[in-house]
Protein backbone atom coordinates (compact mmCIF):
# COMPACT_ATOMS: atom_id res chain seq x y z
CA UNK A 1 0.00 0.00 0.00
CA UNK A 2 2.83 2.37 0.92
CA UNK A 3 4.30 2.08 -2.59
CA UNK A 4 1.15 3.65 -4.11
CA UNK A 5 1.54 6.77 -1.96
CA UNK A 6 5.26 6.86 -2.71
CA UNK A 7 4.60 6.77 -6.45
CA UNK A 8 1.82 9.41 -6.27
CA UNK A 9 3.95 11.77 -4.15
CA UNK A 10 6.98 11.22 -6.35
CA UNK A 11 5.07 11.94 -9.56
CA UNK A 12 3.57 15.05 -7.98
CA UNK A 13 6.97 16.31 -6.77
CA UNK A 14 8.62 15.63 -10.15
CA UNK A 15 5.78 17.44 -11.98
CA UNK A 16 6.14 20.38 -9.56
CA UNK A 17 9.92 20.46 -10.13
CA UNK A 18 9.35 20.47 -13.88
CA UNK A 19 6.88 23.37 -13.50
CA UNK A 20 9.34 25.36 -11.36
CA UNK A 21 12.10 25.13 -13.95
CA UNK A 22 9.77 25.78 -16.84
CA UNK A 23 8.63 28.99 -15.11
CA UNK A 24 12.31 29.80 -14.51
CA UNK A 25 13.04 29.27 -18.25
CA UNK A 26 10.10 31.57 -19.11
CA UNK A 27 11.63 34.24 -16.88
CA UNK A 28 8.64 34.19 -14.46
CA UNK A 29 10.68 32.97 -11.48
CA UNK A 30 13.98 34.30 -10.13
CA UNK A 31 16.95 31.95 -9.77
CA UNK A 32 16.73 32.34 -6.01
CA UNK A 33 13.03 31.35 -5.88
CA UNK A 34 13.56 28.48 -8.32
CA UNK A 35 16.31 27.08 -6.07
CA UNK A 36 14.18 27.33 -2.94
CA UNK A 37 11.21 25.66 -4.61
CA UNK A 38 13.51 22.92 -5.94
CA UNK A 39 14.84 22.24 -2.44
CA UNK A 40 11.27 21.98 -1.11
CA UNK A 41 10.12 19.54 -3.83
CA UNK A 42 13.31 17.47 -3.58
CA UNK A 43 12.68 17.24 0.17
CA UNK A 44 9.14 16.00 -0.55
CA UNK A 45 10.62 13.39 -2.91
CA UNK A 46 13.17 12.29 -0.30
CA UNK A 47 10.52 12.06 2.43
CA UNK A 48 8.28 9.97 0.19
CA UNK A 49 11.00 7.31 -0.21
CA UNK A 50 12.63 7.60 3.23
CA UNK A 51 9.72 8.45 5.57
CA UNK A 52 11.69 7.46 8.67
CA UNK A 53 14.40 10.04 7.96
CA UNK A 54 12.28 12.72 9.66
CA UNK A 55 12.42 10.74 12.90
CA UNK A 56 16.12 11.58 13.37
CA UNK A 57 15.44 15.32 13.24
CA UNK A 58 12.26 14.92 15.35
CA UNK A 59 14.29 13.16 18.07
CA UNK A 60 16.87 15.95 18.08
CA UNK A 61 14.13 18.59 18.41
CA UNK A 62 12.24 16.62 21.06
CA UNK A 63 9.14 16.12 18.90
CA UNK A 64 7.55 12.69 19.32
CA UNK A 65 7.08 11.46 15.78
CA UNK A 66 8.66 12.33 12.46
CA UNK A 67 5.27 12.86 10.91
CA UNK A 68 4.46 15.49 13.57
CA UNK A 69 7.59 17.38 12.61
CA UNK A 70 6.51 17.37 8.96
CA UNK A 71 3.04 18.62 9.96
CA UNK A 72 4.45 21.47 12.09
CA UNK A 73 6.86 22.50 9.35
CA UNK A 74 4.12 22.39 6.71
CA UNK A 75 1.83 24.52 8.90
CA UNK A 76 4.58 27.07 9.58
CA UNK A 77 5.37 27.21 5.87
CA UNK A 78 1.70 27.69 4.96
CA UNK A 79 1.21 30.47 7.50
CA UNK A 80 4.34 32.22 6.29
CA UNK A 81 3.15 31.92 2.68
CA UNK A 82 -0.27 33.37 3.57
CA UNK A 83 1.43 36.22 5.43
CA UNK A 84 3.65 37.02 2.45
CA UNK A 85 0.70 36.84 0.05
CA UNK A 86 -1.35 39.19 2.27
CA UNK A 87 1.47 41.75 2.27
CA UNK A 88 1.92 41.38 -1.48
CA UNK A 89 -1.81 41.85 -2.12
CA UNK A 90 -1.89 44.98 0.07
CA UNK A 91 1.13 46.33 -1.77
CA UNK A 92 -0.62 45.74 -5.13
CA UNK A 93 -3.78 47.41 -3.76
CA UNK A 94 -1.76 50.49 -2.87
CA UNK A 95 -0.19 50.54 -6.33
CA UNK A 96 -3.66 50.39 -7.90
CA UNK A 97 -4.75 53.31 -5.71
CA UNK A 98 -1.75 55.37 -6.88
CA UNK A 99 -2.68 54.76 -10.53
CA UNK A 100 -6.36 55.57 -9.91
CA UNK A 101 -5.35 58.75 -8.00
CA UNK A 102 -3.00 59.94 -10.72
CA UNK A 103 -5.71 59.37 -13.29
CA UNK A 104 -8.28 61.31 -11.22
CA UNK A 105 -5.91 64.27 -10.74
CA UNK A 106 -4.69 64.34 -14.34
CA UNK A 107 -8.23 64.33 -15.72
CA UNK A 108 -9.02 67.29 -13.54
CA UNK A 109 -5.91 69.30 -14.61
CA UNK A 110 -5.59 72.08 -12.05
Amino acid sequence: MQIIFQIIFSLFAIAALGLVWRRRADGLLSKHSALWWSIIWLAVLALAWYPNSTQVLADILGIGRGVDLVTYCALAFLFFTIFRLTIKIESLQRDITKVVRRDALEKNNI
Binding site: I96, T97, V100, R101, D103, A104, L105, K107, N108, I110
Partner: peptide
Protein backbone atom coordinates in the same frame (compact mmCIF):
# COMPACT_ATOMS: atom_id res chain seq x y z
CA UNK B 1 -15.07 70.24 -8.37
CA UNK B 2 -15.22 66.49 -8.97
CA UNK B 3 -12.23 64.16 -8.85
CA UNK B 4 -13.25 60.77 -10.17
CA UNK B 5 -11.75 57.46 -9.05
CA UNK B 6 -12.45 55.02 -11.87
CA UNK B 7 -12.34 52.17 -9.32
CA UNK B 8 -13.64 52.10 -5.77
CA UNK B 9 -10.54 52.48 -3.57
CA UNK B 10 -12.02 53.31 -0.17
CA UNK B 11 -12.56 56.43 1.92
CA UNK B 12 -8.93 56.79 2.99
CA UNK B 13 -7.77 56.64 -0.63
CA UNK B 14 -10.39 59.21 -1.64
CA UNK B 15 -9.33 61.59 1.14
CA UNK B 16 -5.66 61.30 0.17
CA UNK B 17 -6.59 62.10 -3.44
CA UNK B 18 -8.30 65.20 -2.05
CA UNK B 19 -5.22 66.01 0.05
CA UNK B 20 -2.97 65.78 -2.99
CA UNK B 21 -5.30 68.10 -4.89
CA UNK B 22 -5.38 70.52 -1.92
CA UNK B 23 -1.56 70.57 -1.70
CA UNK B 24 -1.30 71.25 -5.44
CA UNK B 25 -3.92 74.02 -5.12
Amino acid sequence: TVLRHTLNRGQGAALETGHTYARQS
